[in-house]
Design a protein around this nucleic acid. Structure first.
Lengths: 143, 143
DNA sequence: TTAAAACCTACTAACTTACTAGGGTTTTCC
DNA sequence: GGAAAACCCTAGTAAGTTAGTAGGTTTTAA
């Protein structure tokens, strides 16, 4: 039940973009360095995020990446689903509705898995990048 | 973020044991057949569950496995943690307190991962095998 | 025209998963 | 006391996934 590095790194990088929202395009190498990640690996993640419309890119010198929307309008759920696919704990409760077991109706285990999925979804869909910024700032104020 | 077959199969098998709770030891092959699972693979899962004290075993003919406690006292969380280990979405929010990233304090991503973990934990720790039985029965009554 | 940057594709080593195989060992029935 | 039923244990392994690396092409500001 671990998140892969795709989701984790992607979330870290998107948070970085959110922090610098409004400053124009941010080059990959600065994000990679800031977060301690491999640049060419991050590139692949950004390619996915771009295809899914969460970020925009600007080519050429002084180019880079920037959020496609306001940090308050991008949720953790959108980011994780883009990079990891559906966050269901098993295929039989996945969004695509494909079931790989026959006794789909009244399967006790499926009911449990569904509850797990719903609770994950409700968390990740309720947190925006802006929320992440606010929360970290709150902690540093208290400190 | 998928559960492995260990957790899924184990949960299915434990549910079966719960259904037959009170009928004495249930042989492995009958559980394997009932749920459509490989017997020798299930054996390994049961060995883990036994070491963790969730089931008891009886050797010899007429032997088999049985729940160590009442179905109402065994939670999905106990079963999944026994078979899958900690259900944290990343090491840095795992129960063992081991952190693999340096900026543990005030890391925005970590705060999100922690929320995910808490929500998973709260679901799996609140559902017992008895709850699973009750829920399935309710569905079949309505039907 | 040079350099900085995004963009794209292919490859690969290491790891994990989901088993299978094949022996024990213990218990009970006859 | 023999045989069978069942648990018990270890090792191996094919397939798939992950987490990258490598190396090139295209775009564009200066």
């Amino acid at each position: 039940m671990k998140l892969s590095t795709r989701g984790r790194y992607g979330l870290m990088a998107m948070f970085q973009l959110a922090l610098e929202y409004g400053n124009g395009p941010i080059p990959l190498n600065s994000i990679a360095e800031e977060q301690g990640l491999s640049e060419s690996y991050l590139e692949q993640l950004f390619s996915t995020l771009r295809r899914d419309g969460l970020i925009n890119s600007v080519r050429g010198p002084q180019g880079g990446y920037l959020l496609a929307y306001d940090p308050g309008e991008i949720t953790v759920g959108q980011i994780l689903r883009s990079l990891e696919g559906d966050l269901a704990p098993a295929q039989c409760v996945g969004d695509d509705g494909s079931l790989d077991c026959d006794k789909e109706f009244g399967c006790a285990t499926k009911l449990v898995l569904q509850r797990i999925k719903e609770s994950i979804d409700s968390v990740i869909d309720s947190i925006t990048l802006q929320d992440m910024i606010d929360e970290v700032e709150k902690i540093h104020l208290v400190k």
